[in-house]
Design a protein around this nucleic acid. Structure first.
Lengths: 255, 255
DNA sequence: CGCGGAATTGAAAATACTCAAAATTAGTGG
DNA sequence: CCACTAATTTTGAGTATTTTCAATTCCGCG
């Protein structure tokens, strides 16, 4: 935890000023440069700031800080959460490599949530003012940026559906299936992965208590749908899990 | 309810091809043209399609339909909702004059939810392809568009917080206070307004049953916080309601 | 006047929460 | 590498909030 302290005025120099390169990045098919030709990728590269390393439990940005940059996750995992007046906290998402952070800040010039690394991670800083300049010259980039923002809107609508209409079992199945699909898209196993977040984080995200999450995990294990060892998870019956997640599962849920 | 029937293939011709005019629209300070100078408003006017009248219970667009246009509400109210594989429905928002519909469709070229009028309403059609062209010429417009999308993201994050962390009483207070603020911003009374949506819609939006909403309404009335007559609501103690909504209310909630 | 959708109210039931304690795991320093 | 401590997770029992089911009531409209 020694690096949990913030140095608001110190430049992010952990790795020197290593420029990020979209062209060379393994995530460029999922991230902002998706669909750009080489020339345009180079233009994007030129505006992208340095990489920045964020250690586990460190904050990338905090609610209320002035907004200057979006961040693309290079590797590692983040969580973003909101806190209201009463101190109630809601995790609004878990982000992994290739995903963009900070889009909720554009409207108010300040970040609207906190972003914290779940493990040692690295991000590319994307100064938003320069990105806006580039939009005028690279229409493809602008179009793709709109898609990404729109995707974030639909992602959140799906979470609203989850929180508003689903019971605990279904919520948890949706959570597992969603992680599975995202790892698959990144070339990782869709059936075996480590949960980067605590049970508490999962519960907060799903609108459940930590105890409920723990019970769910035990029950899914007992049913033979998953295997769990600490934070390592193995999906033994992905079809069943998908059915539960979709709400099309026939079998009555039992204790 | 005679208008509850849908005419999917009938052209929206109710008012002929009346062009919308942002400059003359009372909502232009809240809507897309916010902050544009007269010259730029004119350019926007030129691309904006005809007004379109949508009667109560009619659909403006349906999930899966190809996306071509955003819509700005001129007057009236809409609800947008999502349906998943199992037929579970979640209302993702209620939109009123000056608000934009369809931003969730940009990512996939198809609308991701249904939009239905809660009362006889009118929208301006904004062909998205032409709007994109205009972005290249009117940076102020582009910047404002990004703000609007970003605002939608934060709005949804707030709903996530509501659905994930709040009990029924607080959810309902948030709902009332939010409507109040939005009417105030439009020059209407912040303490007296009609609910355009059914109890069922409210419940669906807030992740509660219709019975719970009804009980909440009765309880708030009994406490002297509001007056209710059918769908007309009067906020008698806005301070108290705001405190409950913020979660900073001191008094223990009682039955 | 009567029908039908919408809303209210009551009682019973269920799901998930709270509180409490035990077990496991991770982190730290010797 | 081990021991110790703190943090996280699991499990159990009892409780509370909200849902479900059922029965009215209210209202708009033909």
């Amino acid at each position: 935890m020694s690096q949990a302290i913030h140095f608001p005025n110190s430049a992010p120099v952990s790795l020197g000023a290593i420029k990020a390169s979209c062209a060379a990045c393994s995530m460029h098919q999922l991230c902002l440069p998706m669909g750009l030709d080489d020339a345009d990728i180079n233009r994007l590269d030129q505006i992208i700031g340095s990489r920045r390393r964020i250690n586990r439990d460190e904050r990338l940005y905090a609610m209320g800080e002035p907004f200057r940059s979006l961040y693309a996750v290079r590797y590692g995992h983040f969580k973003t959460y909101q806190i209201n007046a009463a101190g109630e906290q809601q995790i609004t998402g878990f982000q992994m490599a290739g995903e963009l952070l900070g889009m909720d800040a554009i409207s108010g010039d300040r970040y609207h949530c906190d972003a914290v690394a779940l493990e040692d991670s690295e991000v590319c800083e994307i100064p938003f003012a320069r990105l806006e300049e580039l939009f005028g010259h690279v229409p493809t980039l602008l179009r793709h940026f709109h898609r990404i923002m729109s995707q974030e809107i639909t992602r959140e609508q799906n979470v609203m559906l989850l929180l508003g209409n689903m019971r605990a079992e279904q919520r948890f199945a949706v959570f597992l299936v969603n992680l599975s699909a995202r790892y698959a898209a990144r070339g990782y196993s869709s059936t075996e992965f480590g949960l980067r977040m605590s049970r508490e984080d999962i519960g907060n995200y799903l609108g459940l208590t930590i105890e409920s999450v723990s019970r769910l995990l035990s029950r899914f294990k007992k049913q033979g749908w998953i295997e769990v060892d600490k934070r390592e998870v193995k999906l033994l019956d992905p079809v069943k899990l998908k059915a539960i997640a979709a709400g099309t599962d026939q079998c009555a849920p039992m204790s």
